[in-house]
Write a protein that binds this DNA or RNA. Structure first.
Lengths: 205, 205
DNA sequence: CGTGATCCTGACCATTTGGTCAACAAAGGA
DNA sequence: TCCTTTGTTGACCAAATGGTCAGGATCACG
């Protein structure tokens, strides 16, 4: 459903498009779509502004490309939940993968956070479409495990929401977390056992 | 520490400042600080743009006023945690109050979310100052209960973060939650028992 | 080497936007 | 009523910003 015969790219196109997307990710994740300027993106990419607009039709085009490109990566861990695996281990694996993504890719997390906060103008179809399907599939797997008594019964959808909320919080609200904890703390290192313990207690049978 | 002898206000000043702050809350919570324009705020308030800037020195001034005004309200529930109360009941009360605030004041939640996402340029001192003190106080109460064996032992700070994350998620990511659940669901109604069950299992002794 | 395609940029443009100001209107107190 | 204070606005401005374009530089390939 995704790729529709992309035009071939020269080496220079490949490199510069990557530079632009990289710079744009930084710019958008700090100030949001409207807050980021094409000049900022150009500078972060090490290119001139007209050159940026040579590779992308518009600022909006850059933003949309970023979002759709990164969405797959963002959702990948949920697709890897294995119905044949051990229920608690599968959930914990997903939780850990998601927290690890918040730690390693906070810019991506913030990019999506801004988009959703704004009402997801570029993602509306996806949210109610493929995302919903993926979530429903995962929820069905979870519900199956609960029916078999291998996982404590809770609302599967809200279980997934809780995982998103808990893990992304550490990326999106990083400054708040760090300010409250004070220096000498690694939020992600501390969050890992806390969250693991949380789901072990909630879902253990 | 807060109020420093505000200048007296006429009835008209009071009314128009309120109108402006109300309109600005809507504007800022939808598009963020940079995304909202003074014209939008003026229109939402039913005033002309110059008139808006007659009551507030700048767009930034409106924003800062909103943030500081609403911060007290936002933190109030945490201050009400009673060391003499029943541990689990106190925590559950706080959780429910926080979820209720997300439900009734989603604009405020998004306003703060935008601010934190942006790196909290207007709140840095507060985050590491009074907010940190309030959180530390609450954390100390929680830790005391855990020492007494009246609450399962977990990291108190991350317990608080988890409550923030879980409850605010339903306000900040509302469109995503609704898109995934589909029509016919009330996210807040469903979230309430889920979250209550979560903390009961994690904190019960 | 030559030449067409690709790549790059300075200069420019139209629009948006935060903010100002002079002048006018409305209150309000003596 | 008169006059000072307060409230309101149309017109305007400078800066920022997304985007364009003509022309020059560079590359790739026969």
């Amino acid at each position: 459903m995704a790729d529709q015969m992309e035009p071939p790219r020269t080496r220079i196109q490949q490199k510069n498009r990557d530079l632009i997307l990289e710079g744009a990710l930084t710019a958008f994740s700090v100030n949001g779509f409207r807050g980021a300027t094409v000049d900022q993106i150009a500078e972060a990419a090490g290119l001139s502004k007209p050159n940026v607009l040579y590779y992308f039709a518009s600022k909006d085009d850059i933003h949309k490309t970023l979002l759709t490109t990164l969405l797959d990566m963002w959702l990948a861990p949920m697709i890897r939940i294995d119905p044949a695996g051990d229920p608690l281990a599968e959930v914990m694996g997903y939780v850990r993968a998601k927290l690890e993504m918040s730690r390693r890719f906070p810019r991506e997390s913030r990019l999506f956070a801004y988009e959703i906060l704004q009402g997801a103008p570029h993602l509306t179809e996806i949210l109610g479409g493929s995302l919903r399907e993926i979530v429903d599939t995962a929820a069905a797997i979870l519900r199956g495990w609960m029916d078999q008594g291998r996982l404590a019964r809770v609302d599967p959808h809200h279980l997934i929401f809780s995982i998103w909320a808990l893990t992304q919080h550490y990326a999106d609200f990083d400054v708040q977390v760090r300010a409250v904890l004070g220096p000498g703390h690694d939020p992600f290192v501390e969050a890992d056992p806390f969250i693991e313990n949380l789901y072990r207690k909630m879902l253990g049978v």
